[in-house]
Computed example of a mutant assay.
Amino acid sequence: MRIVSNYTLELQVAVRAALAAGQHFSKAVGGEKQVSAKSSPADLVTEYDPECESMIRQVIHQAFPDHSILGEETTAPGSAASKKAAQEVYQEEHLWIVDPIDGTTNFVYQLPLSVVSIAYAENGEVKAGVIYDPYRHEVFASATGFDAVKMSSQEAADWIEGTAAEQTETTLPGQTLHVLSRDGVRGSVLATGFPPRAASRELATASALKLAHRVKSLRALGAAALHLAYVAAGRLDGFWEYDLNLWDLAAGVFLIKQAGGAVKSLHGEPYGLLVRDIVTAGTPGLLEEMIESVTAKPDGSGE
């Protein structure tokens, strides 16, 4: 039974693992890579993906040898396999959810837009989450009992070693994250992604066209976890995407909630760990308008 009210140790382990993996792959972004396809020609993997997951698993198991881990690179490719894997473990008492390189295509094409995403969940509820951008040395992190924050990689390293300048048991170093307060689609900056699977990509394209004439701008950075971190950090008003996996979403959705944002499935249902079609926003008003716009039929009615 847990005695303390926060998840400091779990968050420190997640940060330690994320720093190790991110620093490993970011050093190789400009070098030669062994690239192959998984579920489709658009779903790429390199030798660094399993290497980074192995590093993360080692850090987690050193601290928590009995905990379960769901990782992208140790799950069979394809939407059906990832759904099945998530269904089998999402209610585990202690579950780590790992995407060692979110944005592998960016990594392959030497675009510095890839992150590490790690979440820790208990009985179907996320308790800690970290997204690490090694190119910008930014660590987005939170746990139950803490605010969501953005730390530099050095601040994060100092914190896990107990040498941070303002170390306390109840606060994290860095800047507190706050979502944006825009209440409607008009004038917003939104982001989406284009999944590797053809049917989902068609849905994403159609939904983007529905919103393009109403927003200030659309962004597609090629890494769902990075989009989610940017919503939590107030850099984007909102984000939606179809057919995402649990490891794409768990940490980022938790950060958005901790930063005061709103999250639902694109079908209007509450978010849970098995949701794959996601919409997030800084405010409930913007989120509901996004759902209405994205799911509208050509005649203006809903789905």
Rank of each mutant, 00 (worst) to 15 (best):
62 Q>I: 02
153 S>R: 06
227 H>C: 12
134 P>V: 14
5 S>H: 13
160 I>H: 05
168 T>P: 06
19 L>D: 02
20 A>P: 00
31 G>Y: 09
33 K>N: 05
177 L>R: 03
28 A>E: 13
211 L>S: 11
116 V>A: 10
157 A>V: 00
221 L>Q: 11
57 R>G: 12
204 A>Y: 03
161 E>M: 09
32 E>Y: 11
294 V>Q: 09
64 F>C: 03
152 S>L: 05
237 D>R: 08
138 E>N: 13
240 W>M: 12
48 Y>C: 04
184 G>R: 13
174 G>W: 09
42 A>W: 07
159 W>R: 07
149 V>Q: 03
87 Q>I: 02
13 V>K: 08
91 Q>C: 12
92 E>G: 07
170 T>M: 06
43 D>W: 05
141 A>L: 08
9 L>T: 13
209 L>K: 15
183 D>Q: 15
124 G>W: 04
122 E>T: 06
240 W>Q: 06
136 R>V: 04
62 Q>P: 01
86 A>P: 04
160 I>L: 15
110 Q>K: 15
135 Y>C: 01
221 L>P: 09
31 G>F: 07
85 A>G: 07
128 A>I: 06
43 D>H: 06
289 E>W: 04
93 E>A: 15
294 V>D: 04
239 F>S: 01
268 G>A: 03
211 L>C: 13
76 A>M: 05
80 A>F: 04
236 L>D: 01
290 M>P: 08
93 E>L: 12
120 Y>E: 01
301 S>G: 11
136 R>W: 03
84 K>F: 03
124 G>H: 03
30 G>Y: 07
222 G>I: 00
2 R>K: 14
94 H>I: 02
35 V>C: 08
186 R>E: 15
242 Y>T: 07
15 V>N: 12
114 S>E: 06
202 E>G: 05
140 F>S: 02
293 S>D: 11
93 E>P: 11
15 V>C: 09
200 S>W: 09
100 P>I: 12
15 V>L: 12
112 P>W: 06
13 V>N: 06
145 G>W: 06
299 D>T: 07
103 G>I: 01
116 V>Q: 10
196 P>C: 09
3 I>G: 04
141 A>W: 06
168 T>G: 04
5 S>L: 14
41 P>K: 10
18 A>H: 08
258 Q>V: 02
201 R>L: 13
181 S>R: 14
302 G>K: 13
194 F>Y: 15
235 R>L: 15
85 A>Y: 05
139 V>M: 11
30 G>R: 08
249 L>C: 06
3 I>W: 08
279 V>Y: 04
214 R>V: 09
